[in-house]
Design a protein around this nucleic acid. Structure first.
Lengths: 347, 347
DNA sequence: CTGCGCATGGAATGCGCTTTCCTACCACGG
DNA sequence: CCGTGGTAGGAAAGCGCATTCCATGCGCAG
């Protein structure tokens, strides 16, 4: 019950290996109609399935795409992955997935494994962390690119690759302005560790815009860059609310991601602090899965799925049309929308 | 700038190709320490990266695992995928992901593409649909298995493969009993199309248990098997609530998945119907991303991540220890827990 | 001191397919 | 009637690596 090989098909059809190959894989050179038919019939008869590995070896092109994300169960990444997967299929690629659990070492290993599998391109999604980890990843990516691969990053630049950037600064700025326009004056920021670039970019832009607009930022809280981090920091936020003296403006908290905001709100509710009654809270990303949350979360919508799609397209176009001929650079910053919902409503 | 080949490493180290191969890939036969060192050094020096494709061809084992899910952006599947990915890495496999958008044809094509890439095993996650689609998928999977592959399904049996089953009937039954114990008496079911096996299993078990426990099921609503389906059916649920004559027991709706429940609640809220004040609502799955939803959703917790892990383990163990020697059967039904939250609280 | 067994390194074959070449053949024009 | 350009099919050389099979050299018992 061994798998039939192309040779078997050729034998059965009474043609040469070369002819069978030309028929069965869209070669530019097609044999005469009679032979084509015979080969097709033989292949169907034998239940022939081409061996993509052997094909890849002979063609030195695998049709594989590596996608590394920090946590595939996080809706932020799974949405990007959906877009990436979609674009990959559209271009005839299969995607190899690696979910690294936010471990920089695993991230590097994933890229190395992808390189070993000779993926045509690798897409790395996720914010960058401490510089030394970044450098190591950049080195890994560069080795891959030098060897003829193509790399695209969704988030911040790493190495030489193409970058699909979320509009962190612009989005946070616009959000701050919208909140100021709503009448909010006193703000706090709930962010991840300062080494997390995404968090830093959003927080800094937000703070800058608030101050420029005449508001004040009283506190910048650092916690884990996740739902649980937000939850853990909920207590601190509650303290801020409780500690406000009478007569001060109500507080508005900007959590740098939706999932952190959701975690914070959950904790606040446990502590009897209601959003937006006692404190306003805004997020960032507009993760689709969280859109039914109550209260509706004020946030900055970014086109996550589209970002995945763009990244893959950037990776694939180059691979297919002009391998290695690209400038190895380029940045796309995607659009955004400030979405005002109930979580920052002023009563 | 061509990638160095193993031959290059061997040359630089002054050894034969065979020796280099033995050193660099955990062969059982290791050369003397001196040579090992020389080969290692040469490999590092040249920046050698093994070609997994060539390796796969020579070994006829790819180290790849195919995972097909219906929609990777759905938290149900992304959670399963996280578990699968985790187990795959633990066993030294890379996962090829296909997200089919619930299209049976795409599902089959994905399996075929995986087969072409000679994945060691394929895991298909997701409920089954119309029988004819199932048969086609089963045929595709069987071809793969006959050719030496291994297949595992998460959901309902398809073909001969191993099955990791969610406890649909048992969970729905237990949920019904818990709700009856809470004092609920009048129920409705919000399910997907009858062709969706998961939906049907849950709905039927629920209805049966309710009746056995002395309750009544007044309506069974069919809608799309998704968040949007739940949302769309919200209006019908509202009508049921409004149509109840005075004095009847309050209504409790069982949505067959959490995401449908969330969609329904969103629509109900828009229509001014509050959960659980005006109507109770329960879901199924206990999707992690939705645990912060308000009101907290009464549901049946199933270990999604673990299910992904189990599936991969079943697929891989066989592949590794006894290729083809398995009975090609077997079912694991996972544990569950009924989780009572605010959405079905009786005032 | 000889012979045997075992360990060690290398040559060579094959994994399944793509893609140059090459040859044979056809239809032409000169 | 011969030469030429063009085409269609096949032979064969890889693609990069694993692994079987050999040859060699060593230690040891006899």
């Amino acid at each position: 019950m061994a798998r039939p090989r192309l040779q078997d098909v050729a034998d059965q059809a009474g043609v040469s290996l070369a002819t069978a190959s030309r028929v069965l894989n869209g070669s530019s050179r097609q044999p005469g109609p009679g032979l084509v038919e015979k080969v097709r019939a033989a292949a169907a008869d034998l239940g022939y399935v081409v061996n993509a590995q052997a094909q890849a070896l002979a063609r030195s092109r695998t049709g594989l795409l590596g996608l590394v994300v920090q946590d595939i169960s996080d809706p932020y990444f799974s949405t990007i992955a959906a877009g990436a997967q979609d674009a990959a299929r559209a271009s005839g690629h299969l995607v190899l997935l690696a979910s690294t659990g936010r471990d920089p070492v695993a991230e590097r290993e994933a890229v190395a494994a992808f390189a070993a599998h000779r993926v045509d391109a690798v897409v790395v999604a996720g914010t960058r962390w401490a510089p030394e980890d970044d450098d190591a990843l950049a080195a890994e990516l560069d080795r891959f690119v030098v060897a003829g691969g193509r790399s695209v990053v969704v988030g911040q630049p790493v190495g030489e690759g193409y970058v699909v950037r979320p509009p962190n600064a612009a989005g946070a700025t616009a959000l701050a302005e919208a909140l100021l326009a709503q009448g909010h004056r006193r703000f706090a920021v709930l962010g991840g560790p300062a080494t997390v670039v995404t968090s830093r970019e959003r927080a800094e832009a937000f703070v800058g815009a608030v101050r420029a607009g005449g508001g004040v930022v009283t506190d910048v809280l650092e916690t884990e860059f996740s739902r649980d981090g937000g939850y853990a920091a909920g207590g601190a936020v509650a303290d801020l609310v409780a500690g406000a003296s009478d007569g001060t403006d109500p507080l508005c908290v900007f959590a740098v991601t939706d999932v952190m905001a959701i975690g914070a709100i959950a904790r606040l509710r446990e502590l009897g602090v209601e959003v937006p009654r006692d404190v306003s809270l805004a997020g960032f990303d507009d993760v689709p899965t969280l859109r039914d949350h109550v209260p509706g979360l004020t946030t900055v919508r970014i086109p996550l799925e589209e970002m995945g799609r763009l990244a893959v397209r950037a990776a694939v176009v180059e691979t297919v049309t002009a391998p290695g001929a690209s400038p190895h650079g380029g940045v796309t910053e995607v659009e955004f929308d400030v979405v005002l919902r109930a979580s920052t409503a002023r009563s």
